[in-house]
């Protein structure tokens, strides 16, 4: 869609949207750590470290994605979807 024809969105929803993106992204990153820590294979400490390395790299990307893709809140839905997938994986692993 052409940018000029997009409906105007009030600027006040930006801070709210950022807070939501941060909270959702943090939740997903935390679930990633928990999931990888539960993976069979490496020792728990090593798996946790791997999870933290990955989750930390993911966290800023998720925040930018969740906040940036604003059309119909696609970004927030994508981040939420990632969280749902991570929660399901966690349920399967536990």
């Amino acid at each position: 869609m052409d940018a000029r024809r997009r409906p105007a969105v009030p600027a006040w929803n930006r801070p709210g949207s950022l807070v939501l993106a941060c909270l959702l992204s943090y939740g997903v990153a935390h679930l990633v750590v928990m999931d990888i820590a539960r993976l069979p294979g490496p020792a728990t400490g090593e798996a946790t470290a791997l999870g933290q390395i990955m989750a930390l790299a993911l966290l800023p990307v998720l925040i930018v994605l969740g906040f940036g893709a604003h059309a119909r809140h696609v970004g927030l839905f994508v981040v939420g979807g990632c969280g749902l997938a991570a929660a399901l994986v966690g349920a399967v692993l536990s």
């Binding site: 940018a3 997009r6 969105v9 950022l18 930018v64 893709a69």
Partner: peptide, 16 residues
């Protein structure tokens, strides 16, 4: 103000 990816990212970049 029209919201585009660029303006939104500009706001995020400025404030964070």
């Amino acid at each position: 103000m029209r919201e585009t990816l660029r303006t939104r990212m500009g706001w995020l970049h400025a404030w964070t």
